[in-house]
Design a protein around this nucleic acid. Structure first.
Length: 160
DNA sequence: GCCAACGTTGGC
DNA sequence: GCCAACGTTGGC
């Protein structure tokens, strides 16, 4: 089993949308390195969801898992879509998307400051300067640390 | 294949 | 809104 992090702008698609939809195609990713990671995902892999560019809400907000391995992203064939890719063909698709399914939402986002200060997350790809990838692999250890931060967050919230 | 120009991302 | 860091594009 492998571990991943995906970024999304919550105004475009949020963890609440995923919770509501239960399952969604993680489509419209248009970066080759991110695409390659999407294609490496296997059913059952665990995925952290990160909200970007949203002020106080920025951070890791919950967890999902891979429901279906990546298949051709339909938006690349849709001429009316801004994600249409004229160089993609049905025989030779360029872009791929897995289906992800909702696992849980943390009570509060785990922000960048908390991640940076956490023991054991120094190598986190998300924290590398200049990082812009929207799909990244995680070490199991990193995944577990972040999930426990999410759970501690929940306990702190419940105790109030 | 080089590289300048341009576009995008995303924290701040 | 700024801007640094990349990725992409296209002329040569």
């Amino acid at each position: 089993m492998r571990y991943w992090m995906v970024k999304t702008e919550p105004t475009v698609y949020s963890i609440d949308n995923l919770k509501r939809d239960r399952i969604t195609a993680w489509d419209r990713v248009r970066n080759y390195q991110a695409r390659n990671y999407l294609r490496e995902m296997k059913k059952g892999d665990r995925v952290l969801v990160y909200h970007s560019s949203c002020g106080d809400g920025t951070g890791v907000v919950g967890e999902a898992s891979v429901h279906t391995v990546a298949y051709a992203d339909p938006s690349q064939f849709d001429k009316r879509s801004e994600y249409f890719d004229p160089k993609a063909t049905q025989d030779q698709p360029r872009w791929f998307c897995p289906d992800l399914t909702f696992t849980r939402k943390f009570v509060a986002p785990i922000g960048l400051e908390v991640l940076r200060e956490a023991r054991g997350l120094k190598g986190l790809m998300l924290l590398r300067p200049g990082n812009r990838l929207s799909v990244m692999p995680l070490e199991e250890r990193e995944f577990n640390i972040i999930v426990s931060l999410g759970e501690n967050c929940a306990e702190a919230q419940d105790a109030r």
